[in-house]
Design a protein around this nucleic acid. Sequence first.
RNA 1: GGCCUCGUAGUUCAAUGGAUAGAACGGCCCUCUCCUAAAGGGCAAAUACAGGUUCGAUUCCUGUCGGGGCUACCA
Length: 592
Amino acid sequence: MMTLPEQIATRLTDALRAELGDALPSDFCAAVTASQDLRYGDYQSNAAMVLAKTARRNPRELAQAMVTRLADMLEAEVSLAGPGFINFRVTAKEYAARMQAMLEDERLGVPKTKSPKKLVIDFSAPNVAKPMHVGHIRSTIIGDTLARLARFMGHTVITDNHIGDWGTQFGMILWGWKNLLDQQELERHPIEALLATYKEVNKRCKEQPTLLEACKVELVRLQSGDAENLSIWKRCIELTKCGLEKIYNRLDIHFDYWLGESFYNEALQPLVEDLVVRGIARESEGAICVFSDGAHAPKDDPFLISKDGEWQPVPAIIRKADGGFLYATTDLATLDYRIREFQADSIWYVVGAPQERHFKQIFDIERMRGVTGDFRHVAFGSILGKDRRPFKTRDGETVSLQDVMDEAVERAASVVDEKSPDMSAEEKAAVAEAIGIGAIKFAELSQNRLSDYIFDWDKMLSLTGDTAPYLQNSYVRVRAIERKINDPVFAAALSGAARIQFILTEEREFHLARLLARFAEVVPATLDDCRPNLLATYLYELARAFHSFYEACPVLRSESSTRYSRLALCELTSRVLRLGMSLLGIRLLERM
RNA sequence: GGCCUCGUAGUUCAAUGGAUAGAACGGCCCUCUCCUAAAGGGCAAAUACAGGUUCGAUUCCUGUCGGGGCUACCA
């Protein structure tokens, strides 16, 4: 089944072809979008104004011709407005038919993709022995939602947590492990002990440069295969993974693979040699680098930068003068592996905007090697403090993700205590967990991913307004109604044995149906642009429409066909909320 | 310096080139003998500045001012 805008666009394009004949480009497809202002109707098209020039027609006159040709259209009333808008007011009958179809469709009208991909999504990627902090929120939550959306749309998705398990931080960790670590504390609280040790060494290094040298020695030993250091390193990874899993489980986020940087160690040297042999990389100042091949205009070339009026090279260094490998080398090897072993045709990296140049270079090197695919840097803005600088606490520490989650759940718990005193302690805890975690996720997902945002405890953990609990509450309300129905006729209708007659006479019934129908267009659009906030905003609007309907249109106290129609609207609302929130990875509750 | 990016109500955020720029929080009014008031209904309040392209600009282009990022051996 086509979505409403698709259906309208098809009709309009046919009408334009009939009117303009060969003057209409053969691949033309009229753009039909949801009207921002419902007074003008549900959907609008500016096709007449777009085509006016090439067709040498007055835009209003052309639009009027379309209105005339589409006068017999059943799904919407068509009208002309302004400089040449064609407005479509969808009829109650059409919405009723769509509600019918949604009741019988598990996908609630959302079409599957026509071009399924094999897609690797790279997100979260914390470092070993360093805490997940608020900075990881964006990548982790956005990446997970994209994976959920892509799977639902019919793509084959592989999620890969590319953890930082081979960085220079290991020099400090190894030194700390050998000289500072409290073994008893390590057994009791492994992650905290490891972290405290790392922090301590980091602090001491800043005071005494000689210590930094000692750490480097430990790192070199590890990299050259020293048995003791290797075993400490492995233990660190195990401990860290164990701690991370706890956080990921609370967030209900799961990875298919955890192929960290170290996984690619053996591939780095051959990769560099191959690039040199093929003339893509060359030696410069002792390092092996990839320079521009001149395929782009200087302005669009990721390997060039303008300095004092001249274009200077900014190479991607793939081997340092001391023989060490870098981020770019690992990323190239990782990309190779994903294409070769996972048969990926698409790889999306959910990584912060500051790394834009890095990914442009990586993708451009792939172009030089003749490797093609849908490689995307799904960038996001920074999290800033109130001073608009990168977010830190007063004492300069980053805030750990764990702390944010605990605080969110704690705040939710005190509200649950106050509003639902009759719940069992166990249920209270479960509800607080779902609300607290949901609030964090929704705060992230309802924002445009490219904007920077100011971290604010009160905002992120807010439980009123445009937040997860608002949506969770709408679900609780609809479920409260559904639990009280005991009606064999309605049950039969839901199972397909009878048909529900939708009555959309009240403004709020009509508006609820309108938004329910729109789910089918919002979900694909959300994935197309990798913009979870489209779905989050839609679900918030749906919840708002439901709350409003709920206040004005009694369901259980209404009678006969009105009652059935409203019950069915409730049923669709609960299904859309369930599916939509599951795509955002936010849990719903039966009671709160 | 150059390149990228951002600048919207008091605050935090929205808005594929569309019509009277949406929300939330905060502020001020209303609504629980009624399906969960974690709700609903209403009021006041904003596109940094100056040009340009366009039938139409928060959106595209140019410049100014102001934040942030990047700019060869960290990840």
